[in-house]
Design a protein around this nucleic acid. Structure first.
Lengths: 221, 221
DNA sequence: CAAGGTCATTATCGAACGATAATACTGTTA
DNA sequence: TAACAGTATTATCGTTCGATAATGACCTTG
């Protein structure tokens, strides 16, 4: 009664974008996208499967049908977000001299466009448990080590600021992503919108200057 | 049955520290402290009043008796945390040349000892709503403006890094506090504990060098 | 001791939670 | 067309949620 046949009757199209497509993959994608939004804003325990289903134009039991349980959907949401990040990260040469700069710029850019990833990571990183262990073991450890090696390359090249290697991961991520993870707060605090493209560009430039003060001014022509 | 007369019978003392003290103020303080822990780890919606009461050695309806509702208890928790931060912030001279340095050091130190404040702030800053509006209007706006003025003093003195004023709040806070807000994650990622006093000192020094590169090396004697 | 006020304790309310069972529908294949 | 597989829809389960009512214990004051 509450949901008027979301995927069957082609009557209500405005509330359910792309609901005409009955394919299994598309429904799963819509559920994952809605889960990303809900988990990012309310946390795992605060997000309800009913709200997630509603955001996807589906019924609540379809989550269990397609993902078995809430935690599996949460994992699918994170793998989606991390694969989107990989699309931006895998492009440049990894061990190059500019690896650290490009990494910083990608973190700022992606953080501004997909704040949900960092919102979820920050929420899960606050308390131990099976979800954090899964995150660290299957995704975060490798990434943090890649960031550390890129940082140590920059240190060896003499262009990096004096920050201990063990602190680079959280300091760079915090300085680069917190404005966007807390964009609603930033919009109330300041007159400008942090996700404005000019602001994002200025932020990325500032982070490169801050963490890589010895770099030659490149994008300045 | 589950809670065996927490504050009345003096039988079970190990599970309920200081439960012999029947004063109204002390029970409220224990409820606030337990609420801080629960809100920090599970978020507002994920924290249950029953778990908060259990952590304080009290019964769940006592929360409504002493704080009316869950949101009032949440506000009391944040005012407690912010007053603890003020105890460290109000000491030094505010408009001095070293105001920015002491602010950075306080943010790192307090963030390492009371990660709950930043955990809650980061969680609430992610989605608009009455709680975020209350936070910004009654507490965060003033503090962010104080930080901005301290930063602009440092910029005028020529000791500050090249970071736009609108980004100082989130970049400094992110770089200084995320390691501690996500300490469980950091402990899984790295071999060292970020809250180790030596690590905290090294972090504070690194943040001062990073954001105030023009400062004279003071604590180096 | 009697009365009243403060707070603890128990019981319980209606709503929302994640999950499952039961049924209905749809499209493909024999 | 009949049978079947895949999925949508409805109904409902047991649990937990925040909040309130009802009762009882304790302490102070007359």
């Amino acid at each position: 009664m509450t949901l008027s046949t979301p995927a069957t009757a082609p009557t209500d199209e405005r509330a359910l974008p792309a609901s005409r497509d009955h394919s299994r993959a598309q429904l799963r994608a819509r559920l994952v996208q809605s889960a990303i939004t809900q988990f990012a804003t309310h946390g795992f325990e605060g997000a309800s499967t009913r709200a997630i289903a509603e955001g996807a134009g589906a019924h609540q039991p379809q989550i269990n049908y397609h993902f078995d349980n809430k935690e599996n959907l949460w994992r699918a949401a994170l793998e989606q977000l991390l694969s989107e990040l990989d699309d931006l990260l895998s492009e440049p040469s990894q061990a190059s001299d500019v690896a650290m700069e490009t990494t910083i710029r990608v973190l700022v850019t992606f953080g501004s466009r997909r704040p949900e990833l960092n919102q979820i990571l920050i929420h899960e990183g606050a308390n131990p448990g099976p979800r954090l262990a899964w995150l660290v073991d299957t995704h975060l450890r490798t990434r943090s080590q890649q960031l550390r090696s890129a940082w140590e390359h920059a240190v060896a090249a003499g262009i990096a600021a004096d920050v201990p290697s063990d602190l680079v991961y959280h300091t760079v991520l915090g300085a680069s992503a917190l404005v966007y993870a807390n964009a609603p707060e930033a919009r109330l605090l300041f007159a400008t919108d942090p996700t404005d493209p000019d602001q994002v560009q200025a932020h990325a430039d500032a982070m490169v200057r801050l963490f890589l003060p010895g770099i030659t001014q490149r994008n300045q022509q």
